[in-house]
Write a protein that binds this DNA or RNA. Structure first.
Lengths: 240, 240
DNA sequence: GTCACAGTTCGGTGACCGCCGAACCGTCCG
DNA sequence: CGGACGGTTCGGCGGTCACCGAACTGTGAC
């Protein structure tokens, strides 16, 4: 037995080990990048994090072994993605907990514009976040499709709305239909869970919004502005 | 500037730093112990974790500086507790994420009975968890007081029930009235949030259950069995 | 076959950090 | 006042770990 055995709480080693996986700046940067829900290659992540390929390879090994990432080998590429929605939620929760960095001034114009694009609209693994996510969530709430006053759940009218909008909801799995996800830019809850994922997928599939850049940021298209206005009464000004 | 500056994600350092606070076995043991919602002295925690007082003092300094703990000095004592419900939720979420340790055999009879007592009923910061928490949540759901099929929220009938049971709900703050907390023993959601906290407080105040041992575990009293049966139709057998 | 390229393995290095005991500072009590 | 006790500070030690470059494996392209 190499580890010491002092504390009597059987959960402590596991908890520390899990946190330890996230407690490295390079690995944290990878997890945040992977929050876009897509699969990245090891090389892309290495360049993104600014470390040698060999270094990143070791990091990926740990993250996969720890169950945070799933991998898929294709030819000479190693694709990794977040293991599941629960991992994504965990990372997002941790990121939201980070002390609100007030008035941090961006170091460059590029970073500044990228930051504000992220604040306007982005995906959070599989659902919409940023001001866009907030606007949609608020609109659903105001129209009585979503209840936030007694918890966080769709109403009967909400179920009907999703159905008539042609957005199918898979109610089979164990994943909650609606769940609140705390936004780290707006610090307000927005719609996640099965409904949030379906809505985001629909928005990307039908061209309501498109991904910009190589990361999480998304932009609402003119088509999307019209659809959001028609279906939910969202003013275009609320998205800027 | 001493830290390196490679990744372009401004969140990565903060995320890694936060996870780093939890990524130590001793600090993890402290956080888990503090999940009972009470204030512990530094000495108690040092004995609990099995390290020297000087070591633990440094750990507490980091946890307080990182905003995970709040402290209160009284005479020669230093009391610490979890900073707020959000920190508690974070720790519980992380603990629940830890790979389900199947068939881990307890090392001693004491640990074994302590474990099963925790599985029967315990508090999770400020609300009920374990089989007790699950039983209450299920009963609320079956009786139409709580909806879990479209999210997680109290119903109108649920609000009335809390009112008629004499359990006041503070709907002022920003904290959600009802929220799902995933149980690490049962791996099922149970009631947290304002309603969960109020119910737990009421249960302890009126003697429905009492704390056993020095930690999170609670036991249902005969009075409590009657109350739970009368108010929610919970069979005593569901609590064993 | 040959070259380019993605990824991995490995040895070595340096920094970080958790740990302890010893000395020290306050508080409480007799 | 003096002694017990809770907590903190400090120096030093040892282990862990992220990092890199170099050598290597395997895939894909020409």
């Amino acid at each position: 037995m190499t580890t010491r055995d002092r504390t009597h709480d059987p959960q402590a080693p596991g908890l520390a080990a899990l946190a330890g996986l996230i407690a490295d700046e390079t690995r944290a940067a990878c997890l945040l990048a992977l929050l876009d829900g897509r699969a990245w290659t090891a090389g892309e992540l290495a360049r993104h994090a600014g470390v040698a390929a060999s270094t990143l390879s070791e990091h990926l090994g740990k993250l996969v072994a720890g169950g945070l990432l799933s991998e898929e080998r294709q030819g000479r590429h190693r694709y990794v993605r977040l293991a599941d929605a629960r991992v994504a939620q965990l990372v997002e929760d941790l990121a939201a907990q980070v002390s609100p960095r007030v008035s941090r001034r961006p170091r460059s114009l590029r970073e500044s514009s990228a930051g504000s694009a992220m604040a306007r609209g982005r995906t959070c693994y599989d659902h919409l976040a940023g001001r866009l996510g907030i606007a949609v969530t608020d609109a659903l709430t105001v129209r009585g499709l979503l209840r936030q006053d007694t918890g966080f759940a769709l109403t009967e009218a909400g179920l009907t709305w999703f159905d008539s909008a042609g957005i199918g909801l898979d109610r089979k799995g164990r994943r909650p239909l609606a769940r609140a996800c705390l936004d780290w830019t707006e610090r307000r809850p927005h719609l996640a869970g099965v409904a949030g994922a379906a809505l985001c997928r629909h928005a990307l599939d039908t061209g309501w919004c498109v991904r910009i850049g190589s990361e999480r940021a998304v932009k609402v298209t003119p088509t999307g502005e019209r659809a959001l206005s028609d279906l939910l009464g969202i003013e275009a000004s609320a998205l800027r």
